[in-house]
Simulated assay, not measured.
Amino acid sequence: MQYVTPVVIGVLYALLNSVLREPHRRHFNALMIAGAGAVYIGGGGLGGWEFAFTALLTYVAYRGLESWTFIGIGWLLHTAWDVVHHLKGSPIIPFGHDSSLGCAICDPVIALWCLRGGPSLRDLVRGGRPAAAPDRTAA
């Protein structure tokens, strides 16, 4: 369950996002990746690197306001940061020893959905074509 639950959470995240219409869905996800960039800053255990990573993901999130590709890249960067914290830093949830590992499993699921353009999964389940707005900028 330690490895399955994070995948289910990632799929649920994408499904719940399907209720948002474009461009609000992309803008919401840009804000989410900005927040994810700062999640370790209060006690991640990596000192000044926490600020550098937050600055990097803030830039990626800003670019993500116009580009699903940047949002997907942001989730992949956060995946790598989760792995670093699982191995060397403090967990994302202080009382959850393997919480950073769970996040590192969940984030690529979200990233793949974002790199596909953040399509409405409701449309995919119905067998129709995904209705995602195209990126406005090239990656």
Rank of each mutant, 00 (worst) to 15 (best):
L15N: 02
S18P: 08
V19R: 12
E22K: 00
E22H: 08
P23K: 01
R25A: 14
R25C: 08
N29R: 00
M32I: 15
M32F: 14
I33L: 12
G35T: 12
G35L: 15
G35M: 14
A38L: 10
V39P: 01
G42L: 13
G43D: 10
G43Q: 04
L46Y: 06
G47N: 07
G48K: 01
G48L: 13
G48Y: 07
W49M: 11
E50I: 09
F51V: 12
F51R: 03
L57K: 01
L57V: 12
Y59P: 00
Y59A: 13
A61P: 06
E66G: 00
S67Y: 05
S67Q: 02
T69E: 08
T69R: 07
F70D: 10
F70A: 12
I71W: 03
I71R: 01
G74A: 14
W75M: 13
L76D: 05
L77S: 04
H78N: 09
A80K: 00
A80E: 08
W81V: 06
V84D: 05
V84R: 00
H85D: 04
H85C: 08
H86W: 15
L87W: 13
G89F: 05
S90D: 07
S90G: 00
S90T: 10
P91I: 08
F95R: 04
G96T: 05
H97Y: 10
H97A: 14
H97N: 06
H97Q: 11
D98I: 14
D98P: 08
D98F: 11
D98N: 11
L101T: 08
L101M: 15
G102D: 07
C103M: 12
I105P: 04
I105M: 10
C106Y: 09
D107C: 11
I110R: 02
I110T: 09
L112Q: 01
C114I: 03
L115G: 02
L115C: 09
L115F: 11
R116D: 05
G118I: 03
P119I: 10
S120H: 08
S120E: 06
R122W: 15
D123K: 10
D123S: 09
D123T: 09
G127D: 11
A131M: 05
P134S: 05
D135V: 10
R136K: 10
